[in-house]
Amino acid sequence: MEKKLTLGRRFLLSRATSVLVVLVLILLLFSLFSPEHRFVDPDNLKVLLSLGAEFSIIALGVGMLMICGEFDLSIGSILVFCSFVFLKLFELEVNPFIIAVVTVFVGGALGLVNGLITVRGQIPSFVTTLGTMMFWRGLTLLLSGGEQTACDVSALGTKAASRFLALFTGRAGGFLPAQFLWFTLFAILLGILLHYHRFGNWVYATGDNRDAARAMGINTDWVKTACFIIVGVLCGVVACAQIGRLACFTSRTGEGWELKAVAASVVGGTSLRGGIGSMMGIFLGAIVISVIENGLVVLRIPYFWTYVFFGLVVLFSVLSSMYIEKKQMEAHR
């Protein structure tokens, strides 16, 4: 006899819920234990929401890519190369909006390169993007000499420059950072694409069973390439936002983001084998990672502890999502 799923049970058994529980727990922890509750101080929340959002925007794309069964280790390198393109155009005093379009376009193109090498060469994307990670980072270091260079858009003094900065670094209502709004916007758009659009069905099918997807006439190579392009485009957007915020180019930007993005996706319930995951989960997972990074700083815990904490959260998430999966199976039986 079938077991009826009550609303409460269904809520508890949804993957996004377990991430939400983790998120609430660490939020409580940081709020209570940070000296003078500095974690919930508006100034810190602003920093958290703007800085964390930069990484989180890219993590959304990485999560979707993982659902279709691929990895991208090159996000940090695409980001830094995009930033470098931005810098060079900035030095030519091009209109910042044109720079932004070109930067995003370059990001998409580098994503396309990852996709084409992976599907045409039939190489695991782990290897493809390991190669491009080194290549684009190396090329950027080579071309930039590895130096920090000022890239202050506001110095242009034009109307376009101030609009550009408002778009990428402004604060809605004097508080909500533009970066966080971008993050939310992308999460909603990608969520609709993934869960309500037919492309999303192809992404899941490709990651879940590529042979079946192909047999059903889905061009899985195209689907994967499109997901790589989405990640690249997001890197381009973040390059613009980051340079707007920092007012300088640094050749080390984005280092270590690749594994953090994978961690965010896994914490959000995405399967490493593809086919399983949700945009809500990835969204929350990215926030969890950003909150941990910020919270530990506020708690004055040495930075080196960050990865210890990441590790614990990743392991806890994987174990709990496996438990949930088991319970779900039993509930369906």
Binding site: W202, Y204, A205, D208, N209, A212, A213, I218
Partner: peptide
């Protein structure tokens, strides 16, 4: 090879 195991029944039937 015909079905995507983690996708719903209806999403499988209408896959593609």
């Amino acid at each position: 090879q015909a079905l995507a195991p983690n996708l719903s029944i209806s999403r499988n039937i209408f896959m593609g």
